[in-house]
Simulated scan of single mutants.
Amino acid sequence: MRILWTVFWTFLLSQMLVYVVSSMTGSTYDFMQGVFLTAVFSIIIIFLGEAGVPNEPHESHH
C-alpha cells in the first residue's frame, strides 16, 4: 500500500511540476513527460525508503 500511495502522489506532483514549468517557459504541456518523471522519481523514492534509512536505533555516545 505504501508503494501505491508513493506512485499516486509522485504522479500528481510530477504532473503539476510539468504543467508549471511548461507554463513558465511558454512551451506546451506534455502528459508523457510527467509520466516519465513519475517513473523516475518513484523508483528513487522507493529505493531511498527501503535501503537508505536504517531502522535500528542509534546508541547515544554523550
Rank of each mutant, 00 (worst) to 15 (best):
M1N: 12
M1C: 11
M1R: 09
M1D: 11
M1I: 07
R2F: 14
R2Y: 15
R2P: 12
R2Q: 09
R2M: 14
R2A: 12
R2L: 15
I3T: 10
I3M: 09
L4E: 13
L4S: 13
L4I: 13
L4T: 14
W5F: 14
W5S: 11
W5L: 15
T6G: 01
T6D: 06
V7C: 08
V7D: 04
F8L: 15
F8T: 14
F8E: 09
F8A: 09
W9Q: 08
W9L: 15
T10V: 02
F11E: 07
F11S: 11
L12V: 11
L12A: 14
L12E: 13
S14W: 00
S14M: 01
S14Y: 02
Q15D: 09
Q15A: 11
Q15N: 10
M16F: 14
M16C: 14
L17R: 15
L17G: 10
L17K: 12
L17T: 15
L17Q: 15
V18T: 06
V18I: 07
V18F: 04
V18A: 05
Y19N: 10
V21C: 10
V21F: 05
V21H: 01
S22C: 04
S23H: 13
M24T: 10
M24P: 06
T25Y: 07
T25P: 00
T25N: 05
G26T: 00
G26S: 08
S27M: 08
T28N: 11
T28A: 13
T28G: 06
Y29T: 01
D30G: 00
F31S: 03
F31K: 05
M32D: 09
M32K: 08
M32L: 07
Q33P: 00
Q33H: 03
G34Y: 00
V35M: 01
V35K: 02
V35F: 00
F36C: 10
F36L: 11
F36R: 01
L37A: 05
L37T: 03
T38F: 01
T38D: 01
T38W: 00
T38L: 01
A39T: 09
V40S: 10
V40P: 00
V40Q: 02
V40K: 02
I43S: 13
I44D: 10
I44A: 11
I45S: 06
I45N: 06
I45C: 03
I46D: 04
I46N: 03
I46E: 07
I46H: 06
F47Q: 10
L48R: 02
L48G: 06
G49V: 01
E50A: 00
E50N: 02
A51E: 05
A51R: 06
A51G: 04
G52K: 01
G52P: 00
G52N: 00
V53I: 14
V53M: 12
V53C: 09
P54A: 07
E56R: 04
P57Q: 09
P57G: 06
P57E: 11
H58T: 15
H58M: 14
E59G: 07
E59K: 11
E59N: 07
S60M: 12
S60C: 04
H61V: 10
H61D: 09
H61W: 14
H61T: 08
H61P: 02
H61A: 07
H62R: 08
H62N: 05
H62S: 07
H62Q: 06
H62F: 11
H62I: 03
H62M: 05
